[in-house]
Design a protein around this nucleic acid. Structure first.
Lengths: 180, 180
DNA sequence: GCATAGTATTCAATAATTGAATATCGTAAA
DNA sequence: TTTACGATATTCAATTATTGAATACTATGC
């Protein structure tokens, strides 16, 4: 893809999120990120991909790798998060999701790391996201109301969106009820 | 991606779906597929991608392109669907979606072409899909019930899935109520 | 007759993804 | 003790996907 100025993917934030805790190398990061009770529930990251993401994060300046000559293990590259990476992660962690289609993975990822590092901020982010979702619902309902009944396809699409957003809001409320 | 034996993407079925009606060339297909009241509501296909998909479909034997020397237009390649492509499309059109995350685009695409070519079969597909979704819901609810309450993340993920599947089922019922 | 928008396709550059290759270490059986 | 095997750890070339821009022709209005 030409001229694509590194739009950050969530897998990359996931890596950053684990490195936020402590310096780790690729192989161990892979174990962390594929934990079937953790990120593994929402993502499927392959080893060779993961190494590519690490390179990308390194080039971006968010992490920094240093060679660890092997005494009890093969030579490996230990990555540690930089100040820039740290603040990027923290910013990301308080940012809301801007489009329904991204919610499933994007919000869950934030939720995972909030549980891990800042459980006290869960409520606050859920509230902000709830507001955003309510906005989505309003816009979509409005658009939906302008569609003539004959236009079955367009109508059904909007109806679907409304239902989906409703489900997201319902879930956010469930989370808040659990957190308090 | 090495050794990837052409897993068909839905955009390709969308093209096949338009060619099912009549032979068309890339530029016009693009107009059809980006119609903001049609597939454009669920998909965003770029020109240069579209031409690549056409190549792929051609190599696969689902469509066949012939050069149309230009009298009133630049030379263009008109594609027509083959017998094999036709039956692949028909099979696809009656197949259900197998994973919730694909529902949004996959089911809508089938719905679009059902409205266009086989409105009488909408109810039948919705019923089959409804059954499948009910299965999803059962499985997910069951899995969810085995998660200890302390495992907040896993629990929330399952809760989300249940809510999502519920929304899909609700929408399917709405569609059925509209179609009758 | 000339600029401009629309028609129609191709392409080289870049990015993403993959499976396999490489190499080291621990350990348990033969 | 050697050898076989699975776990550790990373790299790479091949393939596929995606992009913006380039090319070229036609129609239309001014």
């Amino acid at each position: 893809m030409r001229g694509n100025i590194n739009p950050f993917t969530s897998s990359e934030f996931a890596l950053l999120g684990f490195l936020y805790e402590k310096p780790t190398h690729g192989y161990d990061l892979h174990k962390l990120i594929t934990d079937p009770d953790g990120i593994g529930l929402i993502w499927n990251v392959k080893m060779s991909n993961l190494y590519a993401y690490l390179d990308k994060l390194d080039k971006k300046g968010f992490i920094h790798g240093t060679m660890q000559p092997g005494d009890a293990h093969p030579t490996r590259m230990e990555y540690q998060i930089t100040a820039e990476g740290k603040s990027a992660f923290e910013e990301w962690l308080k940012s809301i999701v801007l489009h329904p289609r991204d919610f499933r993975q994007e919000f869950m990822l934030r939720y995972f790391f909030l549980l891990k590092y800042q459980p006290d901020n869960i409520n606050s982010l859920c509230n902000k996201q709830h507001q955003e979702c309510t906005k989505w619902l309003g816009n979509t309902t409005l658009q939906s109301s302008h569609v003539p009944i004959e236009e079955k396809f367009r109508n059904s699409i909007f109806q679907f969106r409304v239902t989906q957003i409703g489900a997201i809001i319902q879930w956010l409320e469930w989370i808040k009820s659990q957190t308090n």
